[in-house]
């Protein structure tokens, strides 16, 4: 068990140092895919914790809160899989015939920076830190794509850029019902009538008026 943890930490460390060899080693190793999946799982959990202020703003109760983090992580895994799928399709089209699992391996491992996603909770610094982590993760993915498709950096950038465009189109067209469904699932799991995805004064006031009323016997 401890060996597995050691291997995991070592792999994450190498990914964070953006070592191209780590992606090569993982392609050859039996453990590769499992390590990638663990990275996605923990990165997903961590970044869901990082974005949990929205759950707190919606006053989600503790057990529901934990469930929401779990479901959020599952969505994270789904997103990474779809993102890998679009890169895999484009890569096969333009470069080289590799298996889907090889691409998932790379994209999964590249989620390593999001293991620090919980830091997004930090006031003021958290949001820009989240952007930096995404950029870091993107860089790791580019290194991995270079390795798996055996292409230079600019082509790796091109294919992931195109993959991103494909993903955006997917989300806005056939993905739309999925997004709506995801929101509905999140709302359901949180145990709310409507999960507000943004926090602003006017939205809070709607929630708070009830509360002020209860606490002060009707402030307004």
């Amino acid at each position: 068990m401890s060996e597995a943890i050691q291997l995991f930490l070592l792999t994450v460390g190498r990914t964070l140092r953006l070592e191209p060899a780590v992606f090569q080693d993982m392609q050859l190793s039996d453990e590769g895919l499992r390590l990638a999946l663990f990275t996605i799982l923990f990165a997903g959990l961590s970044s869901q914790v990082g974005h949990s202020v929205i759950l707190i703003a919606n006053r989600v109760r503790p057990p529901r809160f934990a469930m929401s983090i779990g479901v959020g992580s599952a969505f994270y895994l789904f997103n990474v899989s779809i993102w890998s799928l679009s890169i895999w399709l484009l890569g096969r089209l333009f470069f080289k015939d590799v298996t889907y699992w090889e691409v998932l391996n790379v994209v999964g491992l590249a989620q390593a920076p999001h293991l620090f996603g919980f830091l997004v909770l930090l006031p003021f610094l958290g949001v820009p830190l989240g952007w930096l982590l995404s950029l870091y993760s993107l860089l790791a993915m580019l290194v991995g794509i270079q390795v798996v498709f055996d292409v230079p950096f600019y082509l790796a950038l091109g294919v992931s850029g195109l993959g991103w465009v494909v993903l955006q189109i997917f989300q806005r067209t056939i993905g739309q019902p999925i997004t709506t469904l995801a929101h509905r699932v999140r709302t359901r799991v949180a145990g709310l009538e409507d999960l507000r995805e943004t926090i602003d004064a006017h939205a809070l006031l709607e929630q708070a008026e009830v509360r002020l009323e209860r606490e002060t016997g009707g402030l307004v």
Partner: peptide
């Protein structure tokens, strides 16, 4: 003050 100025915590703190 940093919490008040944060885009996520701020609206709650300021209420």
């Amino acid at each position: 003050v940093i919490v008040s100025a944060d885009s996520r915590y701020g609206p709650i703190y300021n209420l």
